[in-house]
């Protein structure tokens, strides 16, 4: 084996094969329903039509997409702001305890999504633990309505995806050479400058990866908006889910799904370009 042009392809082959066989083929099969009609009893009637795409163009769906993108983006920014210092602190802990800290960061998420969300409800609701605590501390005003608000949804999303961002950022931070930072400091750069010029660019790929996790998982989430948001907020993932299962309209669900997938992939490709540029990668376009 030598580092020639075929080796990267060989390395990627098993993963690519898995994705093509089990994701691309089945999904194309289902997404192709977008070109057909909904049967009278649901299901798919094989009469070709473009009606479903016309329905996707309805501004209502663009509005729902933009609104859920805004909520997801807010959750992403907050999650990164919390996760970065946490990942940084973990990467500065003694080497032996780093894996333990990481493990304890994900451990809460080996319980179940639904019961974790119920736990938040118990904390936040009007008759909940936080309000009771306030009352026993002598607070006499109206109980705080923290639940069924956009902030509750964002809190739930940040909470559930925070460990993923910590993991992603940690994975780039831990390879940072402390000597590099010392060198930067020795050359007279202050801590802020060292962070902005050395640490941040090197860890930006991790921040981007973690940010992508929160964003895509949030925009597709439907349990948190339903329970913590009281069903008052809709994410796009929910919209596609409703078409397939509630409305029993697979062709329209397929059209909405395809539009969502394409939009998200374009956004992610742009994001990847921007990150590569900002973190000053030596490879890729620069090398050519």
């Amino acid at each position: 084996m030598s580092l020639n042009a075929t080796r990267p392809n060989l390395l990627a082959a098993p993963g690519v094969a898995w994705l093509v066989a089990f994701m691309v083929v089945p999904c194309l099969l289902v997404l192709s329903y977008a070109f057909f009609q909904r049967g009278v009893w649901g299901g798919v009637e094989y009469t070709v039509t473009l009606e479903n795409f016309a329905r996707v163009a309805d501004p209502l769906y663009a509005k729902i997409f933009l609104n859920s993108a805004r909520i997801a983006l807010t959750a992403t920014v907050i999650a990164i702001l919390i996760a970065y210092p946490a990942a940084y602190a973990i990467s500065r802990a003694p080497r032996m305890s780093q894996p333990i800290l990481l493990f304890f960061a994900v451990l809460p998420f080996w319980s179940n999504y639904l019961i974790r969300t119920y736990a938040w409800i118990v904390l936040l609701n009007r008759e909940g633990l936080i309000n009771n605590l306030l009352r026993s501390l002598g607070y006499t005003g109206e109980p705080l309505s923290m639940l069924y608000t956009e902030s509750a949804v964002i809190t739930g999303l940040v909470y559930n995806y925070l460990p993923f961002v910590i993991l992603a950022i940690y994975s780039t931070l831990s390879r940072l050479n402390p000597e590099l930072m010392e060198a930067s400091r020795d050359l007279g750069a202050g801590p802020v400058r060292t962070f902005l010029r050395v640490t941040l660019p090197l860890t930006l790929p991790g921040v981007a990866a973690g940010g992508v996790f929160v964003f895509v998982l949030s925009i597709g989430n439907f349990v948190t908006p339903a329970l913590l948001g009281g069903g008052r907020f809709q994410m796009v993932g929910n919209l596609v889910y409703d078409q397939f299962l509630t409305a029993n309209d697979w062709p329209f669900g397929a059209a909405l799904g395809a539009a969502l997938i394409l939009t998200m992939i374009v956004l992610l490709l742009l994001q990847a370009r921007a990150t590569a540029h900002a973190s000053g990668e030596r490879k890729g376009e620069a090398a050519q």
Partner: peptide, 8 residues
Amino acid sequence: GTAQKDYS
């Protein structure tokens, strides 16, 4: 039937 579209 087809009115499901309006409902959803």
